[in-house]
């Protein structure tokens, strides 16, 4: 069996070799032509298939492609809308926060000037009091400050001390203290505000200049376009006072 099988196998290979041997018959040439044609067609078709575009697709396939494309387009449209909304929201958010920041900065500036925590500059007057007899006391200084405030002074400095809401004046011997800091003589007082109004307020009859000269001193008011007040007040956080909650404050006004 094995032997016969081997024989048959040998036969097959021999036949293949025999038929494969180059013969130049008409039929062989024709077969070769057919083979060339087949190979050519095969390669052509393979390439055609590989580079086939939409034109080789059937109608249902085209419909599916179209459907895919339109779904994808709708999805992308939705995405585009969402992203645009996000962008707009972010942009307006930036604007809003910039405005809020500006507002906050303005508030900080205002409060800083009011609380004396930032240097201030502007038009105003410089008041110098030469007082050889040291007759000008804390009470007079307080009067001067009141008078300046009455005339609309926004920022006041006495000696080296920034005058704020909590500032107090005190006497010890012949030395005047502002916020526990001695004020050197001659006393210098700087005030920022409408300089004409301020100087007028100082010079009115019976006003500051008058009362100082009554005590044997000389008060000089000089109007300046540009006064810089660099003395700062150090804020001390309140220990006892806390703000009343907003809701309660509006509900029950202080009696």
């Amino acid at each position: 069996m094995t032997e016969r099988a081997a024989d048959t196998r040998g036969d097959a290979w021999r036949r293949l070799r025999r038929i494969g041997a180059p013969r130049l018959t008409k039929a062989n040439v024709l077969v070769t032509v057919l083979a060339v044609t087949l190979g050519f067609a095969l390669a052509t078709q393979v390439q055609q298939t590989q580079e086939a575009g939409l034109e080789s697709l059937t109608q249902p396939e085209l419909l599916r492609v179209l459907d895919d494309v339109s779904q994808r387009s709708a999805r992308l449209d939705a995405q585009l809308g969402e992203l645009q909304r996000n962008r707009d929201a972010l942009r307006s958010g930036v604007d809003t926060s910039a405005a809020a920041l500006q507002q906050a900065q303005d508030q900080v500036d205002r409060l800083g000037i009011l609380a004396g925590t930032v240097p201030a500059t502007g038009p105003g007057i410089a008041l110098t009091i030469s007082d050889p007899g040291s007759k000008v006391t804390a009470v007079h200084l307080l009067d001067i400050v009141q008078e300046l405030r009455n005339a609309g002074a926004e920022v006041i400095q006495v000696g080296g001390v920034r005058v704020v809401a909590s500032t107090f004046f005190d006497d010890e011997g012949t030395t005047v203290y502002a916020d526990n800091a001695p004020v050197e003589r001659p006393l210098t007082i700087l005030a920022i505000g409408d300089s004409a109004t301020l100087s007028a307020a100082m010079s009115i009859p019976g006003g500051v200049v008058d009362s100082v000269s009554q005590r044997g001193g000389v008060a000089t008011v000089s109007i300046r376009d540009h006064i810089e007040i660099r003395a700062l007040h150090t804020l001390i956080p309140p220990r006892f006072a806390t703000p009343v909650p907003a809701a309660t404050a509006t509900a029950s006004p202080t009696p």
Partner: peptide, 20 residues
Amino acid sequence: MIPAIGLVVGIIAGLVLHPT
């Protein structure tokens, strides 16, 4: 043998000529 070579030649020609 010759037809087999012809097949290969045809394939190569198709790849090279790239007909539509």
